[in-house]
Design a binder for these strands. Structure first.
Length: 666
DNA sequence: CGAGAGATAAACACCC
DNA sequence: TGGGTGTTTATCTCTC
């Protein structure tokens, strides 16, 4: 029986709200775990500034960065032409707007929406996310303020409370981390051309921030940073009120919008949205600039085509990046990148929350986060079920005792596809999407191991994985159970349920063969059957797929883009499969959700993107071997596209921090 | 709308 | 007798 956890709000898809039975990941204890928290190079620095001041300053810095980021995002991804200074609403059909994009799977998106709508939707999502981020930062900042005050008070009254200093330090670190996160985000975006920050501005200084903590440096940095955003500046100078900021920036952008350049006469209305850059951050904001144009080249992810001038660029944009499946797909990928980063951000903030809670600093109130933003709220219906972040933002534990750590920062689990169903359900998505379970597992091994998050794989694929991971490819039921519990924190509870499911799957699927052994019965996998299990079908738009294969040839994703993806810890994309363009042709007959086979293939042919760390795959212990001969033939191709298409399901996210994909699964 | 697939629940049989 | 295993069936939900 699933316990419906009430109180957690989740954005339920507008349409299929039928009680998605979600197995609420009820926070049951466990907080620990969180992987290595590499403290941001914290500085020991409080030079002449009092800790409090420093903290305050850092807060501002962080907010500044966040704001910058938000603005840039807004500029690049959402329609700047916001309505008169209100919430940056998005011009998307209400029907669409009502939907929570994050809960829509790629297929749904494609099916439900026409390309123009889809793009609009994507933009909308970006806008929403931005809002959420803004909101989030605002709250965060308010909280910190509050806490600071509290602390100051406390400090006066009980000077003895010496741990205070430490606490502040910890906070500083946390803040720094957040800053770094923001920077990463920015960098990623920059790389992808979504943000055109002149090198050296904004980001650079910030990066050094952690180390350069002496007051003077900070001041300097501050100047540099602020210099990058002339306008915003003033706003924040006085008190970083993100709230006003929200509207300000919005209205600002609206006002600042350079004369609509008719770039993008696309039929999809996108042009309007992708309006001219505005804002602050994009310094190169020449009146005739374009968010996707900078430094003389097209900043479209994976493009980098040189264009002498804007006119040429516009032309290029219209011809090369017109509304088609490929562009749509790229857009989606971009969306995912952003989402991933957001998730990462959420994680960090969650950690911060935990820290604050731990330090008894006004336990973070859930509301700030769960409270949907206006815009979103309309589309959000809180359906108390699971605890994913509906809005992509962290939902702090409802109760102070709730687990704060690794929960739901997960990889795929949180990905959009999963968002709508955290619980038990629909993980099959990912499977269908050909998510390489082995690779994903390898990459997120630690995560799944510690986070009480349901892995986005079907029982069948997990069982198979478990079996294939063993040298002799056979396991007893009990060993399978053990594998589950060892590999996934999620399966350390509700045992009756999932064990039953495991047994059920073993019996049900022909691909699992029971073999009488000396010591009893063991289960093996009939790969052939397994592959047959599902007819090759690809999720997502077939046309899209085709295009990807032919036209795009994922190899087209240039280095920077890939790198960006990699950076954003986008396993799926990082995964070899994604990169293995050479096998793109094979994708046509995709179809197996299987995973390891995919990986194997890639591994075997050794092709890979030069850019991605080879270690990524080299670290797959499993899989390379097993595929029974027969399965070989058709099992391979799978994923590239699939992945590409579906990565909406993004599996991953391995923490930026946990860099290495875990070398061994077992 | 129907089929297929996956998840979950549960009944039941076997065996140790 | 009880627990672990297996097998089946039923019901939902979701995707196609």
């Amino acid at each position: 029986m699933m316990v419906e956890s009430a109180s957690e709000t989740i954005r339920s898809a507008p349409s299929g709200q039928n009680g998605v039975s979600s197995l609420s990941n009820q926070p049951d204890g466990g907080g620990g775990g969180g992987g290595g928290r590499e403290g941001a190079a914290s500085g020991d620095s409080n030079g002449e500034l009092s800790p409090v001041e420093l903290l305050h300053f850092q807060q501002q810095q962080a907010l500044q960065v966040a704001r910058q980021f938000l603005l840039q995002q807004a500029a690049g991804l959402s329609s700047p032409s916001s309505n008169e200074g209100k919430q940056p609403s998005v011009q998307v059909p209400v029907s669409v707007a009502m939907m929570s994009p994050q809960m829509i799977t790629p297929q749904q998106m494609q099916q439900i929406l026409s390309p123009p709508q889809l793009q609009a939707l994507l933009q909308q999502q970006q806008a929403i996310m931005l809002q959420q981020l803004q909101e989030y930062y605002k709250k965060q900042q308010e909280q910190l303020h509050l806490q600071l005050l509290t602390q100051q008070q406390a400090g006066k009254q009980q000077p003895k409370e010496q741990p205070l200093g430490n606490k502040q330090l910890a906070f500083q670190q946390q803040l720094l981390q957040m800053q770094q996160l923001q920077q990463q985000h920015l960098l990623n975006l920059q790389r992808q051309g979504l943000v055109s920050l002149p090198p050296g501005q904004g980001t650079v200084p910030l990066q050094t921030l952690p180390q350069a903590v002496c007051p003077s440096d900070l001041q300097q940095l501050w100047k540099e940073v602020t210099a990058a955003q002339p306008v915003e500046d003033s706003i924040k100078q006085e008190g970083l009120d993100l709230t006003t900021n929200t509207s300000n920036s919005t209205s600002f952008s609206a006002a600042k919008v350079s004369p609509p350049i008719s770039h993008h006469p696309l039929p999809n209305g996108q042009s309007t949205m992708h309006t001219p850059r505005r804002d602050s951050s994009s310094h190169e904001e020449t009146p005739g600039s374009h968010p996707l144009y900078g430094h003389g080249e097209c900043k479209w992810p994976g493009c980098e085509t040189l264009c002498e001038d804007l006119g040429q660029f516009v032309k290029h944009l219209n011809t090369e990046h017109a509304l088609d499946d490929r562009s749509t797909a790229q857009c989606r990928v971009q969306m995912q990148v952003v989402q991933q980063l957001e998730i990462q951000l959420a994680k960090e903030s969650e950690r911060l929350q935990a820290m604050m809670a731990h330090l008894h600093m006004r336990p973070s109130e859930p509301k700030p986060f769960s409270q949907p933003l206006n815009l979103v709220s309309s589309a959000t219906l809180s359906k108390s079920t699971s605890d994913t972040f509906p809005d992509g933002l962290p939902h702090p534990p409802t109760s102070a005792t709730a687990p704060i750590t690794p929960l739901r920062q997960g990889p795929s689990v949180i990905s959009s596809s999963t968002l709508h169903s955290v619980g038990p359900i629909r993980r099959r998505n990912s499977e269908k999407f050909c998510t390489p379970i082995s690779s994903e597992l390898a990459q997120n091994h630690e995560f799944y191991k510690n986070a009480d998050v349901r892995p986005p794989f079907t029982y069948a694929s997990l069982i198979r994985q478990a079996i294939l991971e063993t040298p002799d490819r056979q396991l007893t039921l009990n060993e399978i159970y053990n594998w589950f519990t060892r590999m996934f924190a999620y399966f350390r509870r509700n045992t009756a349920t999932w064990k039953n499911a495991v047994r059920h799957n073993l019996s049900l699927h022909k691909c699992f063969v029971r073999v009488e052994n000396v010591k009893g019965a063991v289960w093996t996998v009939d790969e052939h059957e397994y592959q047959k299990r599902r007819p090759p079908k690809m999720t997502g738009s077939p046309t899209l797929v085709k295009n990807m294969i032919s036209g795009l040839g994922y190899g087209a994703l240039n280095a920077s883009y890939q790198a960006a993806l990699a950076e954003s810890s986008f396993p799926l994309l990082n995964s070899p499969t994604m990169i293995n363009t050479s096998s793109a042709s094979g994708m046509l007959h995709v179809g197996h959700d299987d995973v390891s086979s995919t990986v194997e293939q890639v591994n075997s042919n050794g092709s890979s993107s030069p850019r991605l760390s080879p270690q990524q795959y080299s670290s797959h212990p499993v899989h390379v071997k097993e595929e029974p001969a027969e399965a070989e033939d058709d099992s391979r191709p799978v994923s590239l596209l699939a992945t590409a298409t579906q990565n909406v399901t993004i599996p991953d996210d391995r923490d930026l921090e946990e860099e290495l994909p875990v070398e061994d699964l077992s």
